[in-house]
Simulated assay, not measured.
Amino acid sequence: MNTDEKIIRVALRHFSTSGYTGTSLAMIAEDVGIKKPSIYNHFKNKEDLFISVSEYVLNEYFQLLKNVIDLDEDQSVKSILKNAMIDTSDYLGMEESGKFYMHFLLFPPPDLKAQIHRSFLTFEKKCDEVLSIILKRGIVSGEIRPLSIRECLDAYYCFMDGITSQWFYYDEQTLINKRESAWNIFWQGIKGGNDN
């Protein structure tokens, strides 16, 4: 892990636990083991670091999703989508990443709102692309009924947002039970006649 990554990981922890205004560059530098002025060799200022942390979380989430979607073509579409749902919701249930995603990406600091929103829309477009591949495969094979890809994506994202928010209210076993119930209803809504 290079210094930029160390700073980002430590900043992620601080932003997630202390908030944007409660986190100082001095706190981050101390935990990284460098002097505060050294941070400026890597990031212009606190805002630049925050944007970098945002992009880090979005990229980590996207890579996880892409890795699940890129799995063995012999897997059913149902299995791939379910694994994507489980792996990404588990990622967002992680203390630091989940808190950051749910709080700062959805409700960013006012001065950074426009920039974070642009990053999020770019991230969502990339997610659209990889999810569309598996959704189209499901429609062609008959595993998914002939819906528009946009309808499927919108339903999937709303479903995921609901699952993700559950992490903040329930213990892990309760969340797993709720997630399984929600998945079953979601799949019933989109499945086609060739579903296994």
Rank of each mutant, 00 (worst) to 15 (best):
M1V: 08
M1Q: 09
M1H: 11
N2Q: 06
I7T: 05
R9E: 15
V10M: 03
V10K: 03
A11L: 12
L12H: 02
F15D: 00
S16M: 09
G19L: 03
Y20M: 00
Y20K: 00
Y20R: 00
T21M: 04
A26Y: 12
M27E: 06
A29F: 01
I34Q: 01
I34M: 03
K35Y: 01
P37V: 15
I39Y: 01
Y40A: 07
Y40R: 07
F43G: 12
K44V: 12
K44H: 12
N45I: 13
E47P: 06
E47N: 12
E47M: 11
D48A: 14
I51N: 03
I51C: 01
S52L: 03
S54G: 14
Y56R: 08
Y56N: 12
Y56Q: 13
Y56S: 13
V57I: 08
L58E: 06
N59V: 01
E60K: 05
Y61V: 00
Y61G: 04
F62M: 04
F62D: 03
Q63Y: 06
L65G: 01
K66C: 01
N67W: 05
D70L: 13
L71A: 14
D72K: 12
D72F: 02
D72M: 02
E73Q: 12
D74I: 06
D74M: 13
S79W: 02
S79G: 07
I80Q: 15
L81H: 07
L81F: 08
L81W: 10
K82W: 13
K82N: 08
N83A: 11
A84W: 13
A84L: 09
M85F: 11
D87L: 11
S89D: 08
D90Y: 02
L92V: 00
G93V: 07
G93S: 07
E96D: 15
G98T: 06
K99I: 15
F100W: 06
Y101N: 10
M102S: 09
F104A: 02
L106Y: 14
P108G: 15
P108C: 15
P110A: 10
D111K: 13
K113I: 04
K113D: 15
K113Q: 15
A114D: 14
Q115W: 15
L121Q: 05
L121E: 09
F123H: 09
E124W: 09
D128R: 08
V130T: 09
V130W: 00
L131F: 07
L131I: 14
L131R: 02
I134D: 06
I134R: 13
R137M: 01
V140I: 13
S141I: 14
I144C: 01
I144M: 03
P146A: 04
I149T: 15
R150G: 07
C152Q: 02
A155F: 06
Y157P: 10
Y157D: 15
C158G: 14
F159M: 09
G162D: 04
G162A: 06
I163M: 10
S165Y: 03
S165I: 03
S165F: 09
S165K: 07
S165A: 06
W167R: 07
F168E: 08
F168S: 11
D171H: 13
E172M: 03
E172A: 05
Q173V: 04
T174C: 00
L175D: 08
I176W: 10
N177V: 11
N177C: 04
S181M: 14
S181F: 07
S181C: 09
A182H: 10
A182W: 05
A182M: 12
W183T: 01
W187I: 00
G189K: 06
I190L: 08
I190C: 06
K191T: 06
K191S: 05
G192N: 10
G193V: 08
